[in-house]
Every structure is written in C-alpha cells, then in structure tokens.
C-alpha cells in the first residue's frame, strides 16, 4: 500500500489544502462580523425532533407575479449573482464573468437571447419549484435569499447576458 503515497504526494495535498484554506476568507468581500446580525438559521426548518425549528413548516411553492416594470440594475445583478452570501447563482450555473462556476444548472451566459419575459424569469428565480417540484434550486424569493429589488437586478443581469 505504501506505493500509492510517495512522501511528496502525501504532503502535497495537505499543503495545498492549507494554502487554499487561507483563501476561504475571500479578501475584499464583507466578512460575517461586518453584517448586521449573524443568523443561526433557527427561523428555517431544521432536522431536530425537539427544537422549534423542527416544527417550522417549509414554505410552499409559489408562482410570484412581477409587479410593474422590472427596473433592475444589471451591474448590481451580476455582483449579486456572484456573491456567496447573496444569490450565489454561480455555485451551479455558468454565468457571464463567473469565477469558479458550477455545472449542475444550465449555462446562462446567453440567457438574454432565450426570449423569456421578465415576468417568467422573475417567477422562476423567485421559486423554481413552481415549475419543477424536484428542483435543487433554492427558492431565492420565497425563502428571502434575495429581496424584491435584488431579484429585479439579477433578472436585469440575466436579460443583458448575450
């Protein structure tokens, strides 16, 4: 068995991981401490058999209508889509200008050419379960991951992706 791990090979992944761990803080991004109120997420459904969060119902799928004109800012939207603590859309999707994009969701780099209406995209990002109950996509609107204005900004960014 020794043969599989040369001395160098054993140490290299550890050293690499130590180096990468240092990057986890994401220089330039706001830290947890800088935010208003850190949450322990107990206001959302949890696995506990006894705590109150174990009895909090999951929010049911909704088809949310877009009210009025979109009025979104694509530049802000792009930042929100990349931001880990916000949209984090990049975790699963390939988006324009994405760093470390994911591969689960569809490639959205040209989403603006797909001919979808603002209202349709708004409803899907608000809660994808309205179209696919088995989706892994978090309901960004229904579960308050993004505010109404933030959703509008993200959709403006998606529509501008051509």
């Amino acid at each position: 068995m020794r043969s599989i791990f040369g001395k160098g090979l054993t140490v290299a992944p550890l050293l690499l991981a130590v180096a990468l761990a240092g990057c986890a803080a994401e220089p330039g991004k706001p830290t947890q401490a800088a935010k208003a109120k850190p949450s322990d997420f107990s206001e959302w459904p949890c696995m506990s058999y006894t705590l109150a969060c174990g009895k909090i119902p999951t929010r049911k799928p909704v088809t949310q209508a877009l009210v009025g004109p979109l009025n979104g800012d694509p530049v802000r939207g792009q930042a929100l889509a990349n931001e880990r603590s916000k949209g984090n859309c990049v975790a699963c999707h390939l988006l324009k200008g994405a760093e470390q994009p994911g591969s689960k969701g569809p490639d959205l780099t040209a989403y603006g050419t797909w001919g979808r209406s603002d209202a349709e995209i708004y409803a899907l990002v608000y809660d994808m379960r309205s179209r696919n109950p088995d989706t892994v996509m978090p309901p960004a609107g229904a579960n308050q991951i993004l505010t109404d204005q933030e959703l509008r900004d993200v959709i403006a960014f998606l529509q501008s992706s051509k």
Binding site: W44, P45, M47, T58, P139, N143, I145
Partner: peptide, 12 residues
Amino acid sequence: KLFYTKVGQYNF
C-alpha cells in the same frame, strides 16, 4: 428519511 428531507433557507 432525514437524508432526503429538505430543510433550511436553501431548502436542501
């Protein structure tokens, strides 16, 4: 059952 039950803000 817990392994498949969706929980949390992300509904994961």
